[in-house]
Structure formats: structure tokens, C-alpha cells
């Protein structure tokens, strides 16, 4: 009897135990360790020589110009990628939302970049963006337009990376939006037609509100993802030229051997920024998102 009662109480904890161990080992422990490291001047060769320095790392972050530069780059990159992807994928999704064979083919084509490794994508675009022999300048010239320096000028490098990221990700978001658009009952559009609704008003007052949950999801997922951009920068520019494409994660990567404590502190700051941004989104937009 008594044993039974103990088991009754323990059972739920035993059941979630395996999952909790996983979460603790792979999520909570690394996060706490990151936070812990950020308070040290860490010595890689001899960890016993590591020194607790309090908030010095954080003070250093907020007083260094290169941090602000990479933060600014990241914000511009995120803004560019999120805006362009949302706009373009919405346009394409509206275009593809009719269920025809042609649309299925086009949709598969647009989705394909998403299944290619970002490393391959970056390399291919790296060649295409080569200023002298690259395909993109060849196209520009044959159209009679002035060629661009693409990745080799600090003016255009960040935008070039934005293009690659948008191209790579768009198929996935088109897929989500097409599904959302096809989920809207045709009766609603018929009712709107009988209500003498103009095309613009149908889109603005009916279509957009009905896909707002998916748009909101994309906004948040993409903001978080874009803030952590790394692979394209690593492969295509290495943060250059002249730090023009140095983003936060790449910035952290730069200190991976020289100053672990500082890198950890920057990581914590990045986490905080993403967290705050997400909260702001919810706070600003949750009233405009219609869940059914």
C-alpha cells in the first residue's frame, strides 16, 4: 500500500525524466555554462589560470566600436532579409495559390534551393558574383546596365549576402503561405464578391487577416534565424571587406580562440537581443494576428 503511494507520486517525474535529462544536458547546462564563462577571462591552455572578472567582458562589449558595427550589420541584414522574403514570398504565394499543374511545377522549382546545402549555395553564388568573370555581371552588361562589385565592395557586400539568403529561404516560406492561402474557404471569397468588395479590399480585409498567423510565424522565425546568420558570411566574405559583412555570430566566431570569455558574453547579449525582439513583436502585433 505504502509503496504504491510513493510510486503514484513519483511516476510523473519518472515519466518525464528522460526528456528532462536531455533538456538539462543539451539546453540548460550549455546556457548556464555560457553565462558562467562570460564572467571570466578564460585561459584555454590552462583553465586553472582563468580569472573571474565580473562584468568586465560586458563593459568591454558595449564600449567597443566593432561590436556596434557588427550589430548594425546584423540589424540591416535581418531587416533586409525579413522584409524582402515576406514581400516576395507573399507575392509568389498569391500567384501560386491556384491549384494548377503549372503552379505545382513552379512551386517545386522555387522550393528546390531550400534543400540544397547553404554551403553549396554560397559557393555557387560566390562564383556568380565574381566581378570580372561572374554570371551576374555578364547578365547586367548584356542588359546594358553597369556591373556591380558585389561581394568585393563594402557598399554592396551586405546586400549581396541578403540576396543569397532570400533566394535560399524563399521556397520554404512560399510553401507555408500557399498552404495558408489554400486553406481559406472559397465561400468566403464568394461572400465577399456578393458584398461587392474590391480586389484590394478583399486582399487587405480578408486574405491578409486570415493568413496573419502564418505571417507572424514567419516574421518571428526569420528574425531569429537572420540574427544568427553565419554560414553565408563565413564562406562568401569572411566578414569583409573592411568588416562590411561582419555579423554578430561571425563576430563571436572571431574570438573563439583568443578570448572565450568575451565571445561568451557576446553570445549572451545576442540571446538577450533576440529575446527582447520577440517580446516586442508579440507586444506590438499579437492584436493584429487573428487565430481562429
Amino acid at each position: 500500500m505504502k509503496n504504491n503511494k510513493v510510486w503514484e507520486i513519483l511516476r510523473p517525474y519518472v515519466m518525464i525524466g528522460p526528456a528532462m535529462i536531455g533538456i538539462f544536458l543539451f539546453v540548460i547546462y550549455p546556457m548556464i555554462y555560457l553565462l558562467y564563462l562570460s564572467f571570466f577571462k578564460y585561459n584555454l591552455l590552462n583553465s586553472a589560470m582563468s580569472k573571474y572578472i565580473g562584468f568586465s567582458n560586458y563593459i568591454q562589449i558595449f564600449s567597443r566600436e566593432d561590436f556596434y558595427k557588427s550589430l548594425l550589420n546584423t540589424v540591416i541584414y535581418t531587416g533586409g532579409v525579413v522584409t524582402l522574403t515576406m514581400l516576395i514570398s507573399l507575392l509568389i504565394a498569391v500567384w501560386l495559390s491556384k491549384r494548377t499543374r503549372m503552379n505545382y511545377i513552379v512551386q517545386a522549382g522555387i522550393f528546390t534551393p531550400h534543400i540544397i546545402s547553404i554551403v553549396s549555395v554560397s559557393l555557387v553564388w560566390l562564383w556568380m558574383m565574381e566581378p570580372n568573370l561572374g554570371f551576374l555581371n555578364y547578365v547586367l552588361e548584356s542588359l546594358g546596365l553597369p556591373p556591380s562589385q558585389w561581394l568585393q565592395s563594402s557598399k554592396t557586400a551586405l546586400f549581396s549576402i541578403i540576396i543569397v539568403s532570400v533566394w535560399h529561404g524563399i521556397g520554404y516560406y512560399v510553401l507555408i503561405l500557399v498552404a495558408a492561402l489554400q486553406g481559406i474557404s472559397p465561400n468566403i471569397y464568394e461572400a465577399a464578391a456578393l458584398d461587392n468588395t474590391s480586389k484590394f479590399r478583399v486582399f487587405h480585409r480578408i486574405t491578409l487577416p486570415l493568413i496573419s498567423p502564418q505571417m507572424f510565424f514567419i516574421l518571428i522565425i526569420m528574425t531569429i534565424g537572420s540574427f544568427k546568420v553565419f554560414d553565408t558570411v563565413r564562406i562568401m566574405t569572411g566578414g569583409g571587406p573592411n568588416n562590411a559583412t561582419n555579423t554578430l555570430v561571425y563576430y563571436i566566431y572571431g574570438f573563439r580562440t583568443t578570448n572565450i570569455g568575451y565571445a561568451a558574453a557576446t553570445g549572451v547579449v545576442l540571446m538577450a537581443i533576440i529575446g527582447i525582439l520577440t517580446i516586442i513583436y508579440f507586444w506590438l502585433l499579437s492584436r493584429k494576428v487573428h487565430y481562429q
Partner: peptide, 12 residues
């Protein structure tokens, strides 16, 4: 017209 599934605008 009144539709079978009503077709009310759900977000309004």
C-alpha cells in the same frame, strides 16, 4: 446569399 457553412468573415 446565405451559404451552407455561413461563410462569415472569421476575422471580423
Amino acid at each position: 446569399m446565405v451559404f451552407q457553412n455561413y461563410a462569415i468573415y472569421p476575422t471580423m
